[in-house]
Nucleic acid binder design. Sequence first.
DNA 1: GGTCGTTGTTTCGACATCGATATAACCGAA
DNA 2: TTCGGTTATATCGATGTCGAAACAACGACC
Lengths: 233, 233
Amino acid sequence: METHPSFDAYIGSDGVTLDARDVALLRAIDREGSLNTAAQSLGRSYAHAQRRVVELEDAFGALVERQRGGAGGGGSTLTTTARELLAAFERTRASFEGVAEIAETVIVGTIVERDGELVTVETPAGAIRALVPDGDGEVQLSLRADAVTLTDPEDTPVPEHTSARNRFAGTVVGVESGERIARIAVDVGLEQPVLALVTEDSREKLGLDDGSEVVVSFKATATRGVAVGDADD
Amino acid sequence: METHPSFDAYIGSDGVTLDARDVALLRAIDREGSLNTAAQSLGRSYAHAQRRVVELEDAFGALVERQRGGAGGGGSTLTTTARELLAAFERTRASFEGVAEIAETVIVGTIVERDGELVTVETPAGAIRALVPDGDGEVQLSLRADAVTLTDPEDTPVPEHTSARNRFAGTVVGVESGERIARIAVDVGLEQPVLALVTEDSREKLGLDDGSEVVVSFKATATRGVAVGDADD
DNA sequence: GGTCGTTGTTTCGACATCGATATAACCGAA
DNA sequence: TTCGGTTATATCGATGTCGAAACAACGACC
């Protein structure tokens, strides 16, 4: 079974949500210069485009400067509000994209202490501090590869002097070199190796290869988990 | 205008996508012990529930062990496949949730070098390495607060010995203390201060307060951006 | 083996969504 | 004044979604 996590991003305001299709519409308007040709270029009906623009403006404010009549019959241009909205959407979409495509390490453990949503989880490799909204008992922590920092064992700051206080010494058990980005698997005593995404640059500077000793560290606030099993929902 | 980035998470397989409603359905089946009462408890029709389960099983494999006849008329239980799927969904949803709710710092800069999707961006505070899929010229980088590590200036490893090679010295210009988590704003010479999410614990250990000197660092692979303006799309 | 209660399955119709189409209003330019 | 291309609005029909209800299957119990 080939499963793939994915998402639909949108920006909500006032009950109306601006999604990818709306973004495509606004982009097309910007590109084509009119609602009519924009809808046409997207293979969608003009009626829908017009309806939707009105609907969006109701929630987000003026988005499209419309002009009818005149030379060429008129046309439409985007307001700066619309452009800011597009940029904001693109940014959040890029962030979500990162989460969806980047490998994660799943760590199974048990909550032994809770302080608000900050918990201490007991794992085979030691205690890990993480964010778990609620629940109790067994948890699955999701550690994203881009949140894991690798450092040279000889020059790793003491935990008291950094905000990344989840620290584990381990050995590299796998290197998957990409064009510019490498995926490093580090065994730290957990069931699965911890995956870390680093630039090829960093890999060379740290001299990482199979068998290398390295320290992996990650922040508690970047480690999110969900209670599984005997949760109190 | 109050805008809020949000998302719909789902897990795709074979063209079919398992979304939040499907998860609610499976949860209800697990809780109620039958499709019938599950649908009822969700206020949805039984027909839909049954159809949907078949559809999902077509793509994901056996999810619901159905039993009809017998004492009590029968019932349904989830397979381990279904439970794993639920856990996987919850994990990715939690990750997305983090992206959606956590503050980000928007950094505007200009691409001065590109090597695959790895770029060097020129900013008022200096060069930043980041991931930008494509485009050119002006970019907006999105730096998530939970990806920023703070370290004591006196005990910060040299860049060659860590994979977090975006480093900037700065001063704390704002501390927003929560119950267990603090949001630290650090001025590093950019238009906006960089936001970092750290545990209260870390804040105390590092002695962070307004005016404190601190080093912020973050990985290139955790810094995603989008080209804006003269992009070649 | 028949009965009975519960569940799984299928069919049908109501409802919302969306596209296609038609029409009116608009305004600069020829 | 006419023309041309656009935006704004209303209506109709196709399509897909969903719920209600009828239908079929199952197995313990009598």
